[in-house]
Simulated assay, not measured.
Amino acid sequence: MTPAIDISALTKRYGRTTALHGVDLAIEPGRVFGVIGPNGAGKTTTMRILLDIIRPTSGTVRVLGEDPREAGPALRRRIGYLPGELAMDTRVSGRALLTHYAQLNGARDRARISALAERLGLDLGRPVRSLSKGNKQKVGLVQAFAHSPDLLVLDEPTSGLDPLVQQEFLAMVREARDAGQTVFLSSHVISEIEQVADEVAVLRDGRIVDVSTVERLRAAALRDVRVTVPAAAGDAFAAELRRLDSAHDVAVAASAEHDIVSARLRDGIPAFLAVLARSTVHDLVVQEPDLERAVLQFYGGDASDASASQAEEVSS
């Protein structure tokens, strides 16, 4: 099966600055592929190369089986693109602007524009200049989805959207996948990637750090555990945990009634269970790892840094 996106040894330099370092990536048709990375990681650069907005320094790119540098408008009509920074004609109404885009993209079903606008709560009759950032983002989303393209390339698609509209957008992504469309999206909201992506690429400093499924990334993340043992038994239990290669940040909180031992586990569940089996345990709490923690591990971060990380990962 020909990949919807096939990138090999992709490099992009701006003078002395290298934005992409030999990136390799293959995305199968009918999949939702998410890319996560902080500001400056190379997400937007990669997407712009796919659309032939900018040209690579070296390497090869195939989009829907074609070279975007040679395929021209015919390929562009098969792609729905939402840039990270929207630039639109603000003098006209949303309906007029979207009708114009539909004509360029060869869309025949104009009723789909109205249907998508209704789903997102967008008033098509208002001039674009009067729209808020969130409503302008809705215009961009309708433009990208309206012609039911084979490939959707969405750069920070939920920027400025309220939570209810974000959920509607995620439903649209799932419907696109179910219809056989391929979705390539970047986001600084990791929970969104977690909800819809089949695969995830972690991008750092212009390099692919890892490509995995959401499930595998989550499984590899550290799990927080909290074990309640009898009073004065905490130190001995903690000492056993510290002997495990999989246990980290082991700590004891003692009280007159019981001791609480906390730790972080990476894999090694059977060994941890063996320690539990040899001990008297009053209570056990295991926190299921989320994708956010798994991704932050690639950057030396911690879940406590999540809010700061998400705030910084705006558009790159």
Score class of each variant (00 low, 15 high):
residue 222 L to H: 13
residue 89 D to W: 07
residue 275 V to K: 06
residue 174 R to C: 10
residue 123 D to H: 09
residue 129 R to I: 04
residue 253 A to R: 13
residue 135 N to R: 00
residue 85 E to G: 05
residue 274 A to S: 13
residue 26 A to D: 13
residue 303 A to V: 15
residue 37 G to C: 12
residue 157 P to M: 01
residue 83 P to W: 05
residue 3 P to V: 01
residue 96 A to M: 08
residue 269 I to A: 09
residue 313 E to Y: 06
residue 290 D to Y: 13
residue 212 S to V: 03
residue 212 S to L: 04
residue 127 P to M: 00
residue 68 P to F: 05
residue 198 D to W: 08
residue 49 I to V: 05
residue 14 Y to N: 12
residue 74 A to L: 10
residue 17 T to C: 00
residue 202 V to W: 02
residue 199 E to N: 11
residue 183 V to A: 06
residue 59 G to C: 07
residue 315 S to A: 14
residue 221 A to Q: 08
residue 89 D to A: 09
residue 157 P to C: 03
residue 266 R to A: 15
residue 214 V to A: 02
residue 49 I to Q: 06
residue 233 A to P: 00
residue 186 S to Q: 01
residue 237 F to I: 02
residue 19 A to G: 01
residue 214 V to Y: 04
residue 14 Y to T: 14
residue 310 Q to A: 12
residue 178 D to E: 15
residue 132 S to Y: 03
residue 108 R to W: 14
residue 256 A to H: 11
residue 231 A to H: 09
residue 227 V to K: 01
residue 229 V to R: 12
residue 78 R to A: 00
residue 210 D to L: 10
residue 226 R to V: 08
residue 129 R to D: 13
residue 285 V to N: 07
residue 189 V to W: 01
residue 143 Q to V: 01
residue 74 A to V: 14
residue 234 G to E: 10
residue 194 E to C: 00
residue 221 A to T: 04
residue 282 H to V: 03
residue 82 L to W: 09
residue 36 I to D: 01
residue 144 A to P: 07
residue 191 S to C: 07
residue 131 L to K: 02
residue 193 I to K: 02
residue 251 A to P: 06
residue 288 E to Y: 03
residue 7 I to C: 02
residue 311 A to P: 06
residue 264 R to F: 13
residue 47 M to Y: 05
residue 284 L to V: 15
residue 72 G to Y: 04
residue 275 V to E: 15
residue 303 A to S: 15
residue 316 S to E: 14
residue 46 T to M: 13
residue 225 V to R: 03
residue 39 N to Y: 10
residue 288 E to L: 08
residue 12 K to P: 05
residue 94 G to R: 11
residue 39 N to M: 02
residue 63 V to E: 00
residue 75 L to G: 09
residue 240 E to T: 11
residue 146 A to N: 13
residue 93 S to G: 02
residue 169 F to G: 11
residue 198 D to R: 04
residue 57 T to R: 06
residue 125 G to L: 05
residue 7 I to S: 02
residue 77 R to I: 10
residue 288 E to G: 04
residue 210 D to W: 00
residue 113 I to F: 05
residue 248 H to S: 14
